[in-house]
Design a protein around this nucleic acid. Structure first.
Lengths: 190, 190
DNA sequence: ACTCAACCGGAACACCGCTCCGCTTGTCAA
DNA sequence: TTGACAAGCGGAGCGGTGTTCCGGTTGAGT
């Protein structure tokens, strides 16, 4: 029988945490393209250590974002239970676009991960797509949203709105307005 | 009196042309982030030569795209003269989104350049914004498009649509559909 | 033929992602 | 307690990048 894997060594766990703290700070400052060497330096950890804990950049990002996405998925269910369908959809979408703009460069990483099953972010993207898809289906059921909008359309547009906002501060100011414009396009004609 | 600058030396002109040919090919293959070393190599030119002719990557891109944007601006005027306002706007916007997706990574460069007067692409972006702005104003005059849409909104959304399309082939297939959705959001309610 | 500005090529520097391997350290059995 | 060994560690090293800089070359005007 396969031997039970030993518990994680405390020093390893400590290093992992240090890396996450350093990465959170650096990615918040410089975006998803922050230098991994800098992350290791700030964490006071060897480069090899960083790569062992997080073999790819996506792995690191996924660890950084895991909790946040978890909450967003739960939030979708909560909204579905408490708000009318259209309101639930728009509110959740708004929160998602804010979350996707958390780090500079994140929207691009998310949209790319949706179509790359090997990406560490793929699972999170999938969860967001289906969570949004449920809200979308409910709103379409009520005839409020065009029936030819797919969950992937929704995910792409939401990320695109986040992308616009993180291209320039000037555009970020217009962000809510653009959100309204795009959402209007999704509504069924009255 | 200031001496007339001498004519460009033919060897310099030849190198410039070689660089542009090589860059066009490489950027078409690999996107706006293609290695400048590779461009120089393919052009059989020293790296210093490339940087002298095109001090920044944007300079090179601008040289590559200059003609194309020129034509797009003229096309806007032509459409304004021959097609009804809404049709002119949507057709031109569609052509622009195709043009902005000419190279991988181009939408990001364009949207960034709009707010960076120092970028070599800034002039082209500005021209596109005003060209689109004229068509937009005409359509708004006719009550066809929401009055609270600005030329910058238009530019941002068009680039965002191009951005979606160049993130993944799967999304590119959906591109026309997304274009319709977003454009619907710009229309005034009937 | 001479001069000199214009032009050229590529070495050099600092940084990057990523791999690999010799050394250290925690853990557990004897 | 001690020894052995898996797990973990750090960083040198490789091949790539953008960018600067400068000694040599070349074309054009006198």
């Amino acid at each position: 029988m396969p031997t039970e894997p030993r518990a994680i060594r405390p020093d390893a766990r400590r290093n992992r945490d240090r890396i996450l703290v350093a990465a959170a700070a650096l990615v918040a400052e410089q975006g998803t393209q922050a230098s991994l060497r800098d992350v290791a330096r700030r964490a006071e950890v060897g480069l090899g250590t960083l790569y062992r804990h997080f073999p790819t950049r996506e792995d690191l990002l996924a660890a950084l974002l895991g909790r946040r996405f978890e909450e967003l998925a739960e939030r979708a269910d909560a909204l579905a239970a408490t708000a009318p369908p259209e309101r639930a959809l728009t509110d959740w979408l708004h929160e998602f676009t804010l979350g996707a703009a958390a780090f500079h460069g994140l929207p691009a990483a998310l949209l790319a991960a949706l179509h790359d099953p090997d990406s560490a972010l793929h699972a999170s993207c999938d969860r967001m797509r289906t969570a949004g898809g449920r809200l979308l289906a409910a709103a379409q059921q009520g005839g409020l949203i065009r029936p030819d909008v797919t969950p992937v359309d929704l995910f792409a547009l939401a990320n695109a709105l986040s992308w616009i906002a993180d291209q320039a501060p000037t555009l970020a100011e217009r962000s809510d307005h653009l959100f309204d414009l795009v959402l209007d396009g999704l509504r069924a004609r009255g």
